[in-house]
Every structure is written in structure tokens, then in C-alpha cells.
């Protein structure tokens, strides 16, 4: 499903003015329907991995395959098509502030050209799944952190993407909301979607009992099925 092959990413100017290595010869493969957690300290390279997979940035070296296609060879006009196959959830939610919860979710359906009937049916269903049916007409600023993240998850899964990338999705949430979000991600994985979760949270990783890839200073130092949080 997703394959990183000898990926290195070097930023030419990091704070201090000198080049820094964000990823150093990283290789791993994620199979369809897997639930994989990527752990590591801040600056270990987790977010860089996600940015590369969304083609927000290009690696300095190596190849990235998504569903058999080399991302680096995707023409810029076809990038939106690639991104539509990935559902992304971010720590800072990245919701559109001038759209309601309903409109934020419906936006993805509009992008892919779904009919109005499909949008109305699916958005209502997904709002039900994330427990926000009564908050549909609220703007992000009117929602709590947990509610915003649930809208972001609803947006990420509404168009049934092949992969969901969750970059520190519980970073800003209290333990109750954290548990809700993890349960949602597990539910999404159960229905056959590949989930890649980046987190700092030791408890989550130890609770999940799923595959864990540990990054340290841009290198993969551990890749274990049913792994634990060890840094």
C-alpha cells in the first residue's frame, strides 16, 4: 500500500543556519488494512514522513510508492487526485474556519464530484458516527478541541480513502477525548482502511498492541509487530 525506499530528507537551512537531516535512509512498507503507529521524539521525522506521503515536500533521495505508483513522478496537476486517496488528520485540525462542521466534511465530497444526494446522505451518516449530528451547523470556532478533531476525522474518512494519516491527532486533547479518537481510528481500521498514526502518547501505543515503527534522529531504529513504546 505504502512503501518508503531509502528515503532521506535534508533541509538546507535549519535553525542555526546549517543543514539538518530530517530522515536518513528510511525504508519500510505498510500493507493494506494495517494499523501502524509511528513513534519518536519531537524532531524524529514523523511529520516529515507524512508531508512526503502527501507530496507536500519532495525527498532529497529515495522513492515513495503509494498503491504501486511512485509519488515523485506524479505531475503537479495530478497531485489533488493522489491526495484524495489519503485522509489526513492533524494535531491542529486544519478545518476551514469559514465553513460549518457539515460544510467542512461536505467539501471533500464536493471536490470529488459527488452528487448533492450522496453528500447529504453520507455527511449525515458520518456525523452520526463521530457523534456530532447536533453540531453540524456550528463553525470550528464554536466547537471544543475534541469536537474539532472528530470533524477532522469525519472529513478524513467521508470519501472512503485507502489510507488515513493521523499526525498527533490527540496532541491537544484531554484523556476522555483521546480515548474517543483512538476508538474511532480503530473502528475505521476495522472496516478495512489502512491507518498510519504518529504519536508521542505512550499509553495509546501500549494499549493498541499494533505494529510500531520507532524513529530516532531520522532513522528507523525499531519496527515491531505488536510493538510497545520504547525510546
Amino acid at each position: 500500500m505504502v512503501k518508503f525506499q531509502n528515503i532521506s530528507k535534508i533541509y538546507p537551512a535549519c535553525p542555526g543556519g546549517h543543514p539538518c537531516v530530517a530522515l536518513d535512509d528510511v525504508s519500510f512498507e505498510i500493507k493494506p488494512k494495517e494499523f501502524v503507529s509511528i513513534v519518536g521524539r519531537s524532531g524524529a521525522g514523523k511529520t516529515t514522513l507524512f508531508r512526503l506521503l502527501l507530496a507536500e515536500e519532495m525527498p532529497t533521495q529515495g522513492e515513495i510508492f503509494f498503491d504501486g505508483n511512485d509519488i515523485l513522478n506524479v505531475k503537479s496537476k495530478h497531485l489533488p487526485l493522489l491526495r484524495r486517496q489519503v485522509g489526513a488528520v492533524f494535531q491542529d485540525y486544519k478545518l476551514l474556519p469559514n465553513k460549518t462542521a457539515y460544510e467542512n466534511i461536505a467539501y471533500i465530497m464536493e471536490i470529488i464530484g459527488a452528487s448533492d444526494e450522496e453528500i447529504s446522505r453520507d455527511v449525515s451518516d458520518v456525523l452520526e458516527v463521530v457523534g456530532l449530528k447536533n453540531r453540524a451547523n456550528n463553525f470550528p470556532a464554536e466547537l471544543s478541541g475534541g469536537e474539532r478533531q472528530r470533524v477532522a476525522i469525519a472529513r478524513a474518512l467521508i470519501h472512503r480513502p485507502k489510507v488515513i494519516l493521523a499526525d498527533e491527532p490527540t496532541g491537544n486533547l484531554d484523556p476522555y477525548n483521546t480515548s474517543d479518537i483512538i476508538q474511532l481510528l480503530l473502528k475505521i481500521n476495522e472496516i478495512g482502511t489502512t491507518v498510519i498514526l504518529a504519536t508521542h502518547n505512550k499509553e495509546i501505543i501500549n494499549y493498541l498492541q499494533k505494529r510500531v515503527i520507532t524513529l530516532d534522529e531520522g532513522k528507523v531504529i525499531r519496527d515491531e509487530e505488536k510493538g510497545r513504546f520504547v525510546i
Partner: peptide
Amino acid sequence: EEIKIQRLVGASNWF
């Protein structure tokens, strides 16, 4: 920022 988000979620430039 809004434009950046729209690009990230796969909106085409014309959209």
C-alpha cells in the same frame, strides 16, 4: 492557511 488546507485535502486549483 485556508488555501493550504484546501490543497492538502485534494482540491484542484480551479476549485
